[in-house]
């Protein structure tokens, strides 16, 4: 189900819709569990296609180079004034954080 939902390595919404319609129509045993696992796999894949950049002020980035390097399809910028300085970049299940909170955390862990 998951492999058939991809087109050129990315999740295709139309394909996902078709697969869901077919599977729910069959009313297979354990359908809810199948759908939960399918949802988690699709969500993980979508998370890898998107880079979330969170900062107090929106940075200037060479988007195309960034996307080429990470293999993602798009960058989403989010303004978060709580971060004070620095940025938090999330790509899939990887997070790079260089903010005031992370520095204080590193100082705390060292002590």
């Amino acid at each position: 189900m998951y492999k058939n939902s991809l087109k050129n390595g990315a999740v295709d919404a139309k394909l996902v819709g078709k697969i869901l319609k077919k599977v729910t129509g069959q009313k297979a045993y354990g359908l809810s569990k199948i759908l939960i696992v399918y949802k988690n796999l699709i969500a993980q894949k979508i998370a890898k296609e998107e880079i979330l950049v969170e900062a107090s002020t929106l940075p200037q980035l060479d988007k195309s180079a960034f996307l080429k390097k990470t293999g993602a399809k798009r960058i989403v910028f989010k303004k978060n004034s709580d971060l004070v300085f620095g940025a938090k970049i999330k790509h899939g299940d990887w997070v790079w954080e260089e903010t005031l909170d992370s520095r204080l955390e590193q100082i705390k862990n060292r002590s």
């Binding site: 988690n40 969500a43 993980q44 998370a47 999330k90 899939g92 299940d93 990887w94 997070v95 790079w96 954080e97 260089e98 992370s102 520095r103 590193q106």
Partner: peptide, 25 residues
Amino acid sequence: FSAAPKNVGKIIEIGDGVARVSGLS
């Protein structure tokens, strides 16, 4: 300071001392 990457996950199910986490690749 180092901006070392962290591998994160999210709890999708928890109970009886066992958690099921998505992510953490």
